[in-house]
C-alpha cells in the first residue's frame, strides 16, 4: 500500500550537469522508446537517487502499513475474516520484501534502508500514522487505502525501472484481492446492524481526510517534477491519481448508503472533474514531519522488532554454524 509520489526531493538541475551528455541522451531515448532500464545499465545519479528514495518509501509503507491492520488479526470476527486478514497482511510484508530487493538492485542495502526508517531519515506513507480504533477502520484500510494504492501503483508499473515495474505488477495482482476482501467487509458493515453501520460511517468520517492526503499535495503546490516525469519515475500527478480514485470509488461509497464528510464533494458535469474541499495540508506536513497520532508508536514497534530479531540475524551470518544447506 503506498500513496502518491508526494515526497520527492526537488531535483537540482546542477546535479545533471556532471552527467555525460551522450550517455544521458541515449538513456533518455531508451526511456522515450518505452524500454526498461535494468540494474546494470547506465543511469544518471539523480535517477538512481530518486528511485531508491521512491522504492524505499514504498517498501517502508508496506512494512509499517502491516501494523495498523495486523493488530486486528487477533480480533478479526470469525474464521473467514481471520484467515483473509492474515493472508492480506502477510502479502503486505511480502511486498516489502519484494520492494527492498528491487531497491537493493540500485545499491542501497536492506539494512541501511531499515536503519534509515527507524532513525526517521526516510519516510513512509503518511496514512499509517493514524490509529485503527475499530474493526471498521481496519476494513476501511483494506478497501479504500488499498484502492488508492492500486491507482498509484498501476500508474507506476508503467514506469521505466525494470525491477520496480516487475515488483509492482506482482503487487497489484495481490492488491486486487485485498480490494475485494476489503469491499466485502465494508458491504457487510454498511448493510448490517445499526451498530455496524454506525461503526463504518465513523471510520469513513475519521479516514477521509488522511485518504485525501494520501495522494499527496495538489499539483499547484508540488515540487517541480518535469525531469521525473520525462524519466518515467513519476507516471501520474498527485491530482490525476486523486481524481481517478474519486471517480472510481465515491459512487461505490455512496451506493452503500454511506456519506462522505465533505459537503463540497461533487463531480462537475462540464469539466468531468471532482470538486472537493482541500484537505488541511498543514496537518499533512505536521504528520509527515513526525507529529502525527501514531508516528512514534509505529517507529517504536519497528525498532523493537529489529532489536528483538538482532540475535537471529547475527546467528544467520555465523560462520561456525554447522547447518548451511539451503532448504530447496
Amino acid at each position: 500500500m503506498y500513496g502518491g509520489g508526494n515526497l520527492f526531493e526537488t531535483p537540482k538541475l546542477d546535479e545533471l550537469r556532471n552527467e555525460d551528455p551522450i550517455k544521458l541522451k541515449e538513456f533518455e531515448d531508451r526511456i522515450e522508446r518505452g524500454e526498461k532500464i535494468e540494474p546494470n545499465d547506465w543511469m544518471p545519479a539523480l535517477y538512481r537517487k530518486q528511485l531508491i528514495r521512491m522504492i524505499e518509501q514504498h517498501a517502508h509503507s508496506e512494512i509499517i502499513g502491516a501494523l495498523p491492520e495486523g493488530t486486528w488479526i487477533t480480533r478479526a470476527p470469525g474464521f473467514k475474516r481471520k484467515m483473509s486478514l492474515m493472508a492480506k497482511v502477510q502479502d503486505e510484508v511480502g511486498h516489502a520484501q519484494l520492494l527492498y530487493s528491487a531497491a537493493e538492485t540500485l545499491g542501497k542495502s536492506r539494512e541501511q534502508m531499515i536503519d534509515d526508517l527507524i532513525s526517521g531519515k526516510s519516510k513512509y506513507s503518511n496514512i499509517f500514522n493514524y490509529p485503527t480504533f475499530t474493526w471498521a477502520d481496519c476494513c476501511f484500510i483494506s478497501w479504500l487505502v488499498d484502492a488508492g494504492a492500486i491507482v498509484n501503483q498501476t500508474a507506476n508499473a508503467r514506469g521505466s525501472y525494470g525491477p520496480y515495474c516487475r515488483a509492482l505488477d506482482r503487487i497489484c495482482a495481490e492488491e486486487s484481492f485485498h480490494l475485494k476482501y476489503g469491499h466485502h467487509c465494508v458491504i457487510h458493515l454498511a448493510t448490517g446492524t445499526p451498530k455496524q453501520r454506525k461503526m463504518m460511517q465513523e471510520a469513513i468520517d475519521r479516514w477521509w481526510e488522511p485518504l485525501m492526503h494520501f495522494f499527496g499535495p495538489p499539483d499547484k503546490l508540488s515540487v517541480h517534477t518535469e525531469t521525473l516525469v520525462k524519466w518515467k519515475v513519476k507516471m501520474a500527478t498527485n491530482d490525476e491519481n486523486r481524481q481517478q480514485f474519486l471517480d472510481m470509488y465515491v459512487p461505490k461509497i455512496w451506493e452503500l448508503g454511506l456519506t462522505i464528510p465533505d459537503p463540497n464533494l461533487k463531480k462537475n458535469a462540464e469539466t468531468g472533474l471532482w470538486e472537493y474541499t482541500e484537505p488541511d495540508w498543514a496537518e499533512f506536513k505536521r504528520v509527515i514531519n513526525g507529529d502525527g497520532p501514531c508516528n512514534k508508536e509505529r517507529l517504536a514497534v519497528r525498532r523493537v522488532a529489529e532489536e528483538r530479531g538482532e540475535w537471529v540475524r547475527q546467528a544467520m551470518l555465523a560462520p561456525q554454524s554447522k547447518y548451511v544447506v539451503p532448504l530447496a
Partner: peptide, 28 residues
C-alpha cells in the same frame, strides 16, 4: 499470527504468518 509484521527478518515474518494461516485453516 502475533508475529505478523514484527518477525526477526522479513522472510521469517512471512513464513510464520503463512504457517499460522495454515493452522487456522486446519482448525476450521
Amino acid at each position: 499470527s502475533e508475529w505478523t509484521g514484527i518477525g526477526p527478518i522479513l522472510e521469517e515474518d512471512i513464513a510464520f504468518s503463512s504457517m499460522a494461516q495454515d493452522k487456522i485453516g486446519h482448525s476450521y
